[in-house]
Design a protein around this nucleic acid. Structure first.
Lengths: 219, 219
DNA sequence: GAAAGTATGTTGAATTTTCAACAAAATGGA
DNA sequence: TCCATTTTGTTGAAAATTCAACATACTTTC
């Protein structure tokens, strides 16, 4: 576990936890680490989820595929970030989404009960973890609202521009990389990929932006 | 405050709190009650929110209106339910949504800091409240996912049917009332109202459903 | 109970999206 | 380097949505 300390220190779940307490804490929580190949479905829609995941390396996507095969991407989760908190905490019997490895990745899994309920050793840090978890759930809600703000726009162009503006603001620059390739971006924006490509070309011609793969520059 | 005890007992924030402790708790939390007329904007988008709201009577809607005047409804909040938890807990400086009275309503407001931080009286119930708040945030996340599942469908028909199926399941019956009128339903589904009316008519002709105002029957 | 106001339904034209098929460019291995 | 694969861009036709305008039904208020 030692090799993950650097990442875990930056994880919102462990905010305010001292470095020297982390290892002991992890063993008390029954934390375990697993690796997954690209495209592997780590947790499948429709099944219960008891554990919270922390991305240690690589990345995962929270997504759903409907009966027609249309994929909808909710978010991409990067190292130090959590996923599945809401489903694990709420004790849902059927996850509404799947968790899929978007790159080869290492994931730390912690059973949610171990966080929520005081352990037999009566460690004092559970309250801190619950507080952190709550803060994280609040932040996640904001994140979803951001996606809703994007997808609630009517046209492909408006959705794309709203998304790019948010990304520019987040990066503090008009020039930035997005985490999605074209198909993924289309699935995040809930639009057709070819239509999205066409729209990007148009915006380029109009001089609104420059783009090359995942790099965008707003003009 | 006594007259609200019945409602507050059922509020998820006070789950596990004894009836006789409630009143004392409320005064410690600095709870206050306010009334609003229909259509009044209780909290406006873009402003900070420090307080959590509990609907005591009537109802409010969480919504956003973009620069073109398109309204997007996120959810309707009914008596005993909370709103604004995520924004207050995360300490956001600019709310991404507005809270609007959809009927004349009475709202209890509790400053979020009073819940999150132990008070000078050192009451023992803060931990319980934080735990309840966390559970509620988790449930709210699921609720938003449900909306995302609905709006991620491509056509008006699919969005509507997905929504009605969810409502039927929630009510445990093929015959149920929805909380929205046509315009509100269109704004929740993120579609055009007249197109929605047309689609409902078509479904009626096809014998898929019956409907009259807010009442629907799936056949 | 009539009038005014609000909500819902209907229609057709303009706009936009989706879909399928293919071309071009980039990537990753052998 | 070359080949196979994946990703991205392009296009046109079909389908769906939006928009505006109006008809009808229902509510509310005086």
């Amino acid at each position: 576990m030692e090799k993950y300390i650097e990442i875990l220190e930056k994880c919102p779940l462990f905010e305010g936890v001292k470095r020297e307490d982390l290892l002991r804490m992890l063993s008390c929580l029954g934390a375990r680490v697993a690796s997954f190949d690209k495209r592997y479905t780590i947790f499948a829609e429709g099944r219960p989820l008891r554990a919270i995941g922390i991305v240690l390396s690589g990345s995962v996507q929270v997504e759903r595929v409907d009966i027609y095969g249309n994929r909808s991407i909710l978010t991409k989760v990067h190292p130090t970030e959590l996923f599945g908190e809401a489903f694990a905490c709420a004790g849902v019997e059927a996850m509404p989404v799947s968790i899929v490895a978007s790159e080869p990745c290492e994931i730390m899994l912690i059973n949610c009960d171990h966080i929520l309920h005081t352990c037999s050793n009566n460690c004092g840090f559970h309250q801190q973890l619950i507080y952190n978890l709550m803060k994280d759930l609040a932040r996640k809600t904001l994140q979803i609202h951001q996606k809703l703000e994007v997808t609630s726009k009517k046209t492909t162009r408006d959705k794309l521009m709203e998304y790019l503006m948010i990304m520019a603001k987040k990066n503090g620059s008009n020039s930035f990389d997005i985490p999605y390739d074209r198909q993924e971006l289309a699935d995040y924006l809930e639009v057709d990929r070819s239509g999205l490509s066409a729209e990007i070309s148009k915006l380029r011609q109009e001089g609104v932006l420059e783009s090359r793969k995942k790099r965008f520059v707003l003009l």
